[in-house]
Amino acid sequence: MIAYIVRRLLYAMPILIGVNLLTFVLFFVVNTPDDIARSQLGDRRVTVQAIDTWKRSHGYHKPMIYNGNAQGFGKLTDTVFFQKSLRLFAFDFGRSDSGRDIGYDIGQRMWPSLAIAVPTLVVGILVNITFGLLIAFFRGTYIDFWGVVTCVILLSVSSLFYIIGGQYLLSKLFHLVPISGYDTGVNAFKFLLLPVVVGVVSGIGSGTRWYRTLFLEEIGKDYVRTARAKGLSEQRVLFRHVLRNALIPLLTGIVVVLPLLFMGSLIVESFFGVPGLGSYTIDGIQRQDFAIVRSMVFLGSVLYIIGLLLTDISYTLVDPRVRLQ
């Protein structure tokens, strides 16, 4: 097991290096620091000195990959690639283009993101499984048919409308919760309620349909027929046999997104004004702060790879037939 994990982690290294190279090419070769400086300074006719000063103050003035002027290891380390890209491997994110410490900001903004993402995921899964089981229980009837139709209708609505609709109904019409904002501690609850509700509702369409397919696939299998032939009640068959076995494919879908919960949801957070990592990323995008976007790209890929690893490990835990070598 441990050998497997270590090997998988080693496999992850080339992928992370690939991600790093790709972002480096995207951010520094396609667009040279001169271009970035020019667009940051906002004028196409800025002087060469101004660009040089900006580059120097943000550390973009060094050579790209190889520094011929430096001594010893400095030839490789005293470069933009090493300073800006490779240091990400040590989770040293450096400073954003506006001068703030990115690592500190990420540490601060992680918690509001989790406070929204975790309840949304948990409640969402419970709701979807309930609906999925319900529809599977009534399979072949009108409830099944209209349930699926409702799912298709729900998943044809853009997520933006769920947010706007939720804000309008719950906050503006009924004045139940504040429209947007965030607070620390217990006070955060009333701010979290709306985003979580919106997040759950917007996921019902696709989630329920997906779980229904899973359950129906499982219901068609031989062991279910055997269970029924033994005279078990339909409830018992569904909850004791089908649900447990359907949990295996269900789990893989969930575990892989777990680490990514840290990243938060871009749209929900910026709509509701939550100071999480999602809105941090959006701010970075909108201010054209390349350092922030680069850090978040790297962080996202690391978390994704961790998610894949966790998925494989969780397989062995729930399904004794799977053995990792």
């Binding site: 667009s39 990323t281 054209q288 680069r294 790209v297």
Partner: peptide, 21 residues
């Protein structure tokens, strides 16, 4: 493994810089 939205964001940002210049 790169989150889709971020890759798109990065690429569009870069295009924007190109178009500006």
């Amino acid at each position: 493994s790169i989150p889709g939205v971020l890759l798109i964001a990065a690429a569009v940002l870069i295009l924007q810089v190109y178009l500006d210049n």
